[in-house]
Simulated assay, not measured.
Amino acid sequence: MILIEARDTLMDLGLTDSQLDFSSRWLGKQPSYMSCVVARGQEPSAEALLALAGRITREAMQMRRVFRHAEAAALDALSAKVWSELLARYAGQPEAA
């Protein structure tokens, strides 16, 4: 699941220290959001994925400003995966009336 990969990558980079922090700071959701999604076997909401993609992109830009290019590259790769997930799930879907 993309959320688990994102959480683990961000933890490896030292950008989050817990699943609760990841849910609230990176997904813009309640601290228990990820635990509930995983426990119920649900897909993350488009809103959560969009919030994640935006925050990852902003953090990658910040990393480049301070010459942390390897970390920025890791975040770029993660962002691409999040966007791929979004596009796979929602591209070509009919618009709601």
Score class of each variant (00 low, 15 high):
P31S: 00
R68C: 07
S84Q: 08
F67E: 02
L87H: 14
L87Q: 15
R40D: 12
M1K: 11
L13R: 09
M1L: 03
A97I: 12
D12I: 13
G54H: 10
V82G: 15
D76T: 05
S18R: 08
A91W: 05
T16L: 15
S84P: 05
R25A: 02
E59F: 07
W83Y: 11
A60S: 14
T16V: 12
R55T: 08
S32V: 01
S35F: 00
V66L: 13
Q62I: 15
I4G: 11
T9Q: 15
D17F: 04
S23R: 00
A73C: 07
A88N: 10
R64D: 04
E47H: 14
V66K: 01
L27D: 04
E59H: 11
Q42I: 00
E47P: 12
Q42M: 00
A80V: 10
S32A: 03
S18M: 15
A80W: 03
V66N: 00
L10G: 05
S84I: 00
L3N: 07
A74V: 15
L78D: 02
E59Y: 08
M61I: 06
P94V: 04
F22C: 03
E85C: 08
Q42S: 09
L20W: 09
V66W: 01
S18D: 05
L15P: 06
R65A: 11
E43H: 08
T16P: 14
I2P: 04
S35N: 06
S32Y: 01
L20H: 05
K81C: 04
A53N: 12
C36V: 07
A53I: 06
S23H: 01
S24D: 01
L75T: 12
A53G: 14
L50D: 15
P94W: 00
A70L: 14
L86E: 09
R65Q: 05
A60M: 09
Y90M: 07
K29W: 01
R68G: 01
L75G: 02
A6D: 09
A72Q: 00
I4F: 10
E85M: 09
Y90W: 10
L3F: 06
L78M: 07
Y90Q: 05
Q62T: 15
S32C: 02
Q30K: 02
C36E: 11
P94E: 04
W26D: 00
A70D: 03
S84Y: 06
L78N: 03
L75V: 09
I2Y: 03
C36Y: 08
A74D: 03
V38C: 01
S79G: 15
L13D: 13
L78K: 02
G41P: 05
M61P: 05
G54F: 00
F22H: 03
G41K: 06
S23F: 08
